[in-house]
């Protein structure tokens, strides 16, 4: 039996930075699924603990990295196997950055099973043994697998139980947010990605415009005009579409109609280069 986890009392509470508190508040507002372990909430200061790894060498739960990731898992359990495979990939992704990883399992798990799970997942992080489930009990770990993230100030920043969908994406976002690589809005987007659509009318208008451009380049003017008209029906406020319509009409020797189209394009986007060039070309036709 490995030695029991040693508890190191937390240092007196430091004044938390206003930025961190605001970030937590924003994240909690934008991403309502922020909660915590049963006994430790997001924002709480974590006690340090020292746990032995599979060889008996002691490791701190938290080690002063910018991001401290600690994963509770149960070898032999399907969700745990899936989660630590995903964490193995994330561990590689964040290699070289100030991210420290530990995986923790109960001493109820036979050591050989824990070692086999470590090898199967391909994680490099140490697997720590929680003797007597002391850490599980102290934090209130009621779900496995789950992951906690703490900052360098040892505050619990995020707690995430396993999810079958987008689990690595949300944990990746939590880590990146803590590293300062993404802001609160991007973190919230990872938790609530926008619906995947097939574009809608704006995308259809854009596709027709691209087709019209190709037809124009191939000098197929009637077909090009028809497609740019279709594009404009779907998105009447598209300056590039009005500009292309002007170019096509100019090529069809309809200067008055072309000028009107260029004018409309410039109304919508005064800097539209095609419209400016087309308008100038009609004002000063080359000999």
């Amino acid at each position: 039996m490995p030695p029991a986890a040693t508890t190191v009392p937390a240092s007196p509470k430091k004044k938390n930075s206003l930025g961190r508190l605001l970030a937590l508040l924003v994240a909690a507002t934008l991403w309502p699924a922020v909660w915590g372990f049963a006994a430790v909430a997001v924002g709480d200061l974590l006690d340090e603990a020292v746990l032995p790894d599979l060889d008996g060498s002691p490791h701190h739960l938290l080690a002063g990295a910018t991001v401290n990731v600690f994963i509770f898992f149960k070898p032999g359990q399907e969700h745990s196997a899936a989660a630590i495979r995903q964490f193995a990939a994330l561990e590689k992704e964040f290699a070289g950055k100030s991210v420290r990883w530990v995986a923790i399992t109960s001493d109820r798990t036979p050591r050989a099973e824990a070692e086999a799970a470590r090898l199967a997942a391909g994680i490099a992080m140490p697997v720590l043994i929680d003797a007597g489930d002391a850490l599980f009990g102290r934090l209130g770990v009621i779900l496995e697998p789950c992951v906690g993230l703490a900052g360098a100030d040892r505050r619990l920043v995020a707690y995430r139980p396993f999810a079958k969908v987008n689990y690595p994406a949300v944990v990746r976002a939590e880590i990146r947010h803590l590293l300062g690589e993404i802001d609160a809005a991007e973190l919230a987007r990872a938790g609530n990605p926008p619906p995947a659509t097939n574009g809608g009318p704006a995308a259809a208008a854009h596709r027709r415009l691209r087709l019209a451009e190709k037809l124009f380049q191939a000098k197929l003017y009637p077909q090009a005009l028809e497609n740019v008209q279709t594009s404009l029906e779907k998105d009447p406020a598209s300056a590039p579409a009005h500009a292309l319509r002007g170019q096509i009409l100019a090529a069809q020797n309809q200067p008055a109609a072309a000028l009107l189209a260029f004018a409309r394009a410039l109304e919508l986007d005064p800097a539209n280069a095609e419209a400016l060039r087309g308008k100038a070309g009609l004002a000063n036709p080359s000999p």
Binding site: K164, V165, N166, A169, N192, P193, P194, P195, A196, T197, N198
Partner: peptide, 18 residues
């Protein structure tokens, strides 16, 4: 499912609950 792609795994149009 969105057959082209999605920010949600399994090509889901949204997260499962939504």
């Amino acid at each position: 499912h969105n057959p082209h792609g999605s920010e949600v795994e399994k090509l889901l149009v949204q997260l499962p609950l939504n």
